[in-house]
Amino acid sequence: MAEPTAKRQVTVPIMADLATRGETPEILFWVGCAGAFDDRYKRVTRAFVRILEHVGVNYAVLGMEETCTGDPAKRAGNEFLFQMQAMQNITTFDGYGIKKIVTACPHCFNTIKNEYPALGGNYEVIHHSTFLQQLINEGKVGVAGGGEFKGRRITFHDSCYLGRANNIYEAPRDVLAVLDADLVEMKRCKTNGLCCGAGGAQMWKEPEPGKKDVNVERTEEALATLDGNAAALDSLYGVESGNEGATPAPKTNAQNSIIAVSCPFCMTMMSDGVKNKERENNVQVFDLAELIATAEGLNA
C-alpha cells in the first residue's frame, strides 16, 4: 500500500459557483439530508468526496441549495409535501442543466430516479454503490491487496430501496469483493433481505408496540452470521422461514468484523442495533464508500 505523501485540503465544488463561471460539471453529487446533517453519515459523505477527488471526477454539489427530496413525506402519505419538494428540486436541477446525479442515499436515489419523471424531472441517477462498481471496473479504484480489510469478515446488509425497490444487488457486493475480505451472506439477503426498520418514514417515529424492534432482529441476524453462531441463527429463523440454502459461516470469535451498509438509515439502525447488543467493541458498521476510501488510503 502506497504511503500517503501529502495531505491536502479539499474544497468541494459548489454548483452555483461553477455556474457563475459558466461551467457545468459532469455529475451532481446529491448529498441528501442524512449525508449533510447526520454526524455519522457525514463521514460517508466525506469519504465519498475523497474518492471523487482521488479519481478526478468532474463533479459539484448543491451545497445550501439542496433540500429534502420529499421521500419521507411521500412514504408517510403526505403526497402534497412530497410534490412541493420535488418541484422545487426539479427547478433547481433544470436551472443548472443537470443531467447526471450520483447519491449515497438509496431513498434519494429511488425518489429522483423513479418518482421525479412523473413531475417532469428526467435525469440519469446512480447510486454510489453502482458508481463505485464502475470506478472499480474502469480500474480507477484498485485497492491493491484489499487494503486493511483483507481477510476481515464482512456481511452486507441490503437496503430495501436499493435492492427490492430497484433490483441492485450485485453492485455493492462487487465493491466489497475488491477488499479481499471474508464475505459472508446473511440468510435473508438480496431479494429476501430483511429491512433495517427505518424505511417508510419509520426513521422519524417510534415503532408500534411489538415484541422486538426491527433493527434488533436484523442486527441479531447480522451478528449471528458474522459469528457463525448456528444456534442463534436457528432461533432467529424458526420453522420454515423459507429461503433454504444458506449455511452458517465457520464459527469464529470474529474480532473486528464488519456490517457493511449502503444507506444512511440502515447505518443508523444497524449501529444502534450493535450498541443494543453491546458489540460495538468488536463489530463495526461501515458504508461502502468508507471501506473503499480507507482501503485506498485516502483518509487524512
Binding site: 501529502a6 491536502r8 485540503q9 468541494v12 446533517f37 457525514k42 466525506r46 454539489v61 487524512a300
Partner: peptide, 14 residues
Amino acid sequence: RFNWADDLYMAEKE
C-alpha cells in the same frame, strides 16, 4: 447544510 465539507482533508498519494 454544507458544514460537512468544513476542514475536509485527504491523503494525496504519489
